[in-house]
Design a protein around this nucleic acid. Sequence first.
DNA 1: TGTGGCGATGCAATCGATTACATGCGGCCG
DNA 2: CGGCCGCATGTAATCGATTGCATCGCCACA
Lengths: 345, 345
Amino acid sequence: MNEFKKTPTIQDVARVAEVSSATVSRALTSPERVSEATRERITAAVLETGYTVNQMARSLRLRAAKTILIAIPNIGNPFYSTILDAVVQDAAERGYGVLVANRLGGDPTLGLKDYFYSNRADGLLLFDATLDLESLQDLPLVRGNRPLVLSCDDIPDAPLDLVMTDNRDAADTATRHLIELGHKKIGTVRSRTTPNVVSERHAGFERALMRADLPIRQDWIWQGDHAIAGGIAAAESWLALNERPTAMFCGNDETAIGFISRLRQSGVDCPRDVSVVGFDDIAVAEHLLPALTTMRQPRYDMGKVATALLLDILDGPATERTPARRILKSELIIRASTAPPRDCN
Amino acid sequence: MNEFKKTPTIQDVARVAEVSSATVSRALTSPERVSEATRERITAAVLETGYTVNQMARSLRLRAAKTILIAIPNIGNPFYSTILDAVVQDAAERGYGVLVANRLGGDPTLGLKDYFYSNRADGLLLFDATLDLESLQDLPLVRGNRPLVLSCDDIPDAPLDLVMTDNRDAADTATRHLIELGHKKIGTVRSRTTPNVVSERHAGFERALMRADLPIRQDWIWQGDHAIAGGIAAAESWLALNERPTAMFCGNDETAIGFISRLRQSGVDCPRDVSVVGFDDIAVAEHLLPALTTMRQPRYDMGKVATALLLDILDGPATERTPARRILKSELIIRASTAPPRDCN
DNA sequence: TGTGGCGATGCAATCGATTACATGCGGCCG
DNA sequence: CGGCCGCATGTAATCGATTGCATCGCCACA
């Protein structure tokens, strides 16, 4: 059926349409520059040969891969996969492909990937600030002056384009919600995977407590891992306590899920015995029992905004720019996992 | 610091090391072919210039992009994001990048993507059988004789490499579990997103019922959407029924979550009033209340096996092969959402 | 009728890495 | 001492698309 053994090239089309390859190229990229008659012959020839452009050749020539690289700490986490979803969707609409790098930060083969990824992507979307500024600048993408947009997390003092949520205010809001319910003993499960989000959130947590003149007790602060396991571990330590907090602010929803689930196993009920507020509002949050009170993060929007920012830089003129900072607002979603403390009722 | 304005090329390295670009290329790809002295000079020059290979140029020359394309119906779904995780991990280890295409099937801009993706990926990992065989063969990847591995779903009569789970047996097992608990009135929420998985699962469901001489009632079969919303809709319809099934087999965990959650709102308890078994065993399944009985799908393995299969084809000799079929086993995880029916107690 | 201008098209260089083939050099053996 | 072999390296073609410049008609206007 196909008269060419190999993938047809622009030369093949040119031969069939009886024009030069230059004309074919022009017909495809700026149709108004060729006469109507030739354009039709070329269109027919494209169909006949089944030609599709060879992106490798085009990229080489144009010095643009039409591809962005997205680095995510943990694809399996619904929080990140939603972002990825948004990014892939929007990038595709603007003609860009998305290469995925998982756990770029912690991977010992980073050097290999350097080599591997270089010159393959036009820009980088980084949802992971476990890299410090120095190693970031060592990445060939950045060294090659490729634009980079950082999201979900901040790197202090880095002059980078940034898309974030208002982590500090959000944590403050969540904590205030617990305070307003009457809680005086409030603990938290922090995380360690994304350092600055964590300190921002923790700062918001402490700010709310301080403003309410409530104590910040170190033995009521646990380290989580942004996963269910961390919540479970924190719960076990919580159970061993003599004096327990009556409310907990968890660094994300998975942590809250693990925490509540482990407590339930030991007969401790949420929200009767302890109130829990999560962070993110992942899809299942409202279908849990108790439905989870949480700070909804505009994560789909975060993906969209970050993508738009990066692609605007890529498609725009190569002028000197001052880094942009976009802060998106989170929203408190009150459900059933928070209630007034028992002894205050 | 960097003496080259633009990204350094192999020519720049050659100039610094005072050799030809051919020698640099050889030093990098087959070091044993250059003398030790030159090799050292070249290594030094690579460091000095900060050279990294331009993959576009290499791919053009070698006709291999060192990239695979993965098509997934819904990235946001934890089921798929786990698979993606496995794929990215394993592909990176073997020096391949992963391009993500979301909802390749339903997207009206498929034609655009054709154009766009062609010649960019060496092979395709397809986790979505909403495409029929015909449109599949129209994809340039396939037409260009690029290997393709189909996973999660089957396309009947297609001579394709395949990685699947034992959907029919798994559905049979799940249904038998309900039967063994004493249930006689059993319904199901099917899905429509992945046609053949659905019919396989449904076939397993019906097989189990028939073998137990139980009725297959059409009004006890709902259409879901592999998402929470579908479970909710089915639950609402279930509530309106005069004679209700006492047990439900749900097409996936999200469906089960929505179903149970909606029923609870109306005071119907799982497992007291109705038993529910899910499918997949997503991460939260064991932390739900009730903890979800479900068929665990080896989805991480599915990603790994599919990747290994595709990459073996790509890296192996270009011989004629007969398509491989790998079937992975699912496992029944009994938790708290299933129990004997009330009236049988 | 001559010429300037413009639209359509072709020619050929270019992007950067790879590799078949050519070359040159040194050593070994007869 | 001459010729041959083999290793190390260089030369140049190649992959496929894009694009600056050249060319060729053709029309209009003086």
